[in-house]
Amino acid sequence: MEVELRSAGLEVLGPADEDTSPTVLEAISAVANIEVVPNARISRKAENVRAEIHRMWVVWAHRTGIIAADGSFLVAGSIELGWFRVRLTPRTDISRIVCEYGGIECVARAAGGRQVCAARGEEYDFWIVAKTVDRR
Rank of each mutant, 00 (worst) to 15 (best):
F126C: 06
R120M: 13
H62S: 11
T92W: 00
G113H: 07
N39M: 07
D125W: 00
T20Y: 03
V98Y: 03
S7P: 05
F84C: 08
G65V: 06
V24H: 01
A51C: 12
T23H: 01
V37E: 12
E47F: 02
G113E: 08
V12I: 10
I79Y: 09
V37P: 05
D17I: 15
L13T: 10
I104L: 08
G103A: 15
K45N: 12
K131T: 10
V24N: 03
L25E: 10
C117Q: 03
S7F: 09
A51K: 14
A16T: 10
V31E: 02
I128N: 02
G71F: 01
L5H: 00
A76I: 06
R109A: 07
W83T: 09
A8E: 03
T64C: 11
A110D: 04
V37Y: 05
D19N: 14
G103P: 07
I104P: 00
I28D: 06
T64N: 09
I34N: 09
K45G: 12
A46S: 09
A119M: 06
V58Y: 06
E11Y: 02
N33Q: 03
D93T: 10
E80Y: 06
D134C: 11
R136E: 11
D19H: 13
N33V: 09
T132H: 08
T132A: 13
R96T: 08
E47I: 11
V133A: 04
C99P: 08
I79R: 11
L5K: 02
